[in-house]
């Protein structure tokens, strides 16, 4: 099984395709089958990212819907990719998780093979091609769209990349939100955003925009104060990627609620 003579590539997806093609989704097989699709995929989301003075925050709600029902309450939509980047995905849950997992493995694989991490731009470009592999899926309405954020060590700042279903990659320099509640979250961020904002202020802005998205969009989950399920907030700075604790997020939501009650 060990084939050291084939020194190989740093592209994990290529290796997977040649070694175990059964583990690579082939969505082209779905062509013509969409009529028969059961329409109970887990979907519906708000994920967003926001740049602040020391880095970038990437966040997402926890709910997945199946039609008009809540499919899952504690899904996580934000995934750490390497020491300085993370991805959040909106769309049909199954392929979303697969894309995130494959992307994470690829970036780490490259780092180990080369002995140096893949640049943020390199990661963003590779993600383009992963999104592109899902085109036939997207054409049938089963969309997988990532939002990618990271701290660029060379440029010394947080950066955000959004994508279209054809794999187009676009950089946003301030904030962005995608998913069914994305537009609502963006409206809130637009009013609050300030390029010099610090982390505390930025976290509050994120909390408020998720609240508004959950308020307007039935497929987005707000804070669940009874089950203690809270949106995921992940902060990326020069020091690395770290999750904001549930207690902190809970505290910020309580603060927001008491402010709204006044």
């Amino acid at each position: 099984m060990l084939k050291p003579h084939d020194y190989g590539t740093t592209d994990f997806l290529q290796i997977l395709k040649s070694r175990s093609p059964e583990h690579v989704a082939d969505w082209t097989r779905l062509n013509g089958m969409q009529e028969n699709f059961p329409h109970n995929f887990l979907e519906g989301t708000t994920v967003l990212a926001l740049v602040y003075d020391k880095g970038v925050i990437i966040a997402g709600d926890r709910q997945a819907t199946e039609g008009y029902q809540v499919g899952e309450r504690r899904i996580k939509k934000v995934f750490k990719i390497d020491r300085h980047s993370a991805i959040a995905i909106a769309g049909v849950a199954g392929p979303c998780f697969e894309t995130a997992k494959l992307f994470q493995v690829q970036v780490e694989f490259y780092e180990k093979m080369e002995g140096t991490s893949l640049s943020l731009d390199g990661q963003a470009n590779y993600l383009s091609s992963l999104v592109r592999t899902n085109i036939s899926l997207a054409m049938q309405g089963l969309i997988v769209l990532p939002l990618f954020a990271g701290y660029d060590l060379k440029q010394g700042k947080g950066r955000i990349f959004k994508y279209d279903v054809l794999g187009g990659r676009y950089e946003e320099d301030a904030y962005y939100a995608i998913g069914s509640g994305g537009k609502d979250a963006r409206s809130t961020l637009k009013k609050i955003f300030h390029p010099e904002m610090n982390q505390e202020f930025a976290l509050k802005a994120v909390i408020e925009s998720i609240w508004d998205a959950a308020d307007e969009d039935i497929a987005t989950g707000g804070p669940d104060l009874i089950r203690k399920i809270f949106p995921t907030l992940t902060v990326i700075t020069e020091e690395g990627v770290s999750d904001v604790s549930d207690e902190t997020v809970e505290g910020m939501f309580h603060e927001l609620v008491s402010r709204l009650e006044q």
Partner: peptide
């Protein structure tokens, strides 16, 4: 080769 095999197995 070891990294490659490990990644494929873990995936």
């Amino acid at each position: 080769a070891g990294i490659r095999e490990a990644e494929v197995k873990g995936y």
